[in-house]
Design a protein around this nucleic acid. Structure first.
Ligand SMILES: NC(=O)c1ccc[n+]([C@@H]2O[C@H](COP(=O)([O-])OP(=O)(O)OC[C@H]3O[C@@H](n4cnc5c(N)ncnc54)[C@H](O)[C@@H]3O)[C@@H](O)[C@H]2O)c1
Ligand SMILES: NC(=O)c1ccc[n+]([C@@H]2O[C@H](COP(=O)([O-])OP(=O)(O)OC[C@H]3O[C@@H](n4cnc5c(N)ncnc54)[C@H](O)[C@@H]3O)[C@@H](O)[C@H]2O)c1
Lengths: 205, 205
DNA sequence: TTTATATTGTGAATAATATCACATAATAAA
DNA sequence: TTTATTATGTGATATTATTCACAATATAAA
């Protein structure tokens, strides 16, 4: 039920899909642990938490395990998101094939300048005025914010007004909103700074 | 000393820079805590860990605090990184002004296809053959991997061979290498899946 | 000056997360 | 069959991170 165990579920899913593609039928908690670089007890503890059971001495049937995990992750239907901001990051996301392969669909894009090209004719670009209505009409639950930091809070407020349920935010600011709406921040400057800090710390040892 | 407290240090730094720009001179642990959405004891505990002290009842002098944090983060000189892979993500990074503003410089870029345009004439693009030599000659310590997942491990091996000290990896795979070289993974599919999982969990409550 | 107040700094308590240890059961071997 | 072996599943334990509680003390007010 905690963030970390859900992140691991996603990783188990990826590993299982790869194993399945390679023709494997069974898997042991040890194999999954190796793939993720963790202990096998962690794998079984996670499964235990989500009421996933395997076979004593027999490991897990990949197909069954995968199906259970996909259901927990809500991967039984296409996961639609809207993208707000078609700049550098927004366009990179629009061109990425990996989302589609994993059942995630960028449904539509919004920008203050709706003349911006997406480079994909299957994705419409709308002006910001239509954001709230569109999300409500299409029952979109998750949005990606890829606008400049000064605009991000305003966009978030609109999304909340539209009833969005979760947000992935690339702007390097803390978005303020109701506790129960999860916001995941991707802050690349922070990550790079963090790396340098570790690198420097290693040198002093 | 742990990842989380260093991440918070970066956030304190950002907040302090904003406060400084607004003309503030002093700050209390409460202010920083509010800005980050954490408790003030956490702020003081972090500072305590890094031997940062303030003034009883007087808070902290922003300039002094900022300087101490910048030194801990290794922000006393430009932090140079190389970028490997000039595709969707790579180009987005190349066009981002935020790195420069924070003292991070994309020194140069490498691609299997060095004819790719960066859109910036101050950043050279080199073929992969020159990666190892360049990193060694220029003493680059951190690299960003933005190549397709199948190529990522090969690129990582080259970087290790060149003596790289830390890596930011966008490819959705676990890079295998020596324990002591930190690798930060940015996995956007994972983050979005995670959001949906939370959103679904909320609905069942 | 003295007293009240506000804020830091940190050891102790608590909470969250991961690991261990081992009972349990399924399968394979004897 | 019976016994040995190999995984799972989970309560107990250890580790890590956060919060609490409060002493110490600098500043402001009386
Ligand atoms: N590009 C990167 O590599 C990178 C790295 C780290 C963080 N970020 C962050 O990601 C965000 C986007 O970065 P970018 O480089 O793509 O920026 P960008 O300037 O290239 O694109 C921003 C887009 O948002 C649109 N926009 C501006 N104001 C808007 C508003 N109020 N409503 C809707 N749309 C609006 C603009 O028209 C533009 O298309 C920024 O917050 C940035 O700090 C980007
Ligand atoms: N674009 C996104 O929004 C996005 C989102 C999530 C994850 N990712 C991941 O980021 C990575 C890059 O994605 P992208 O969309 O930029 O890919 P891309 O295909 O647009 O670009 C990849 C670049 O790497 C270069 N390349 C290929 N093989 C190489 C090699 N062996 N050595 C050096 N360069 C090589 C290619 O020439 C190309 O320029 C991928 O691993 C992808 O899964 C991207």
């Amino acid at each position: 039920m905690n963030r970390r165990s859900i992140i691991r579920l996603s990783k188990y899913k990826n590993t299982l899909q790869r194993l399945k593609a390679m023709g494997f039928v069974k898997v042991f908690s040890d194999n999954l642990a190796d793939a993720l670089g963790i202990r096998s007890t962690q794998v079984r503890k996670d499964f235990s938490q989500f009421k996933i059971t395997g076979n004593k001495r027999g490991g897990y049937i990949i197909d069954e395990l995968l199906e259970k995990i996909l259901r927990i992750l809500g991967k039984t239907s296409i996961q639609r998101v809207v993208l707000v901001g078609i700049g550098n990051i927004g366009r990179a996301l629009l061109h990425y094939k990996g989302f589609e392969n994993e059942g995630i669909e960028i449904d539509s894009a919004f920008d203050i300048n709706p003349d911006k090209q997406t480079g994909r004719d299957d994705i419409s670009v709308y002006p910001m005025e239509q954001l709230v209505g569109y999300i409500q009409k299409e029952k979109i639950e998750v949005a990606v914010i890829a606008v400049p930091d000064i605009a991000a809070q305003r966009v978030f407020d609109l999304l909340l007004q539209a009833g969005i349920k979760g947000v992935l935010n690339f702007a390097p600011i803390r978005l303020r909103g109701p506790e129960q709406i999860p916001v995941t921040n991707v802050n690349l400057v922070l990550e790079i700074e963090n790396l340098f800090c570790f690198v420097n710390a290693k040198k002093e040892e």
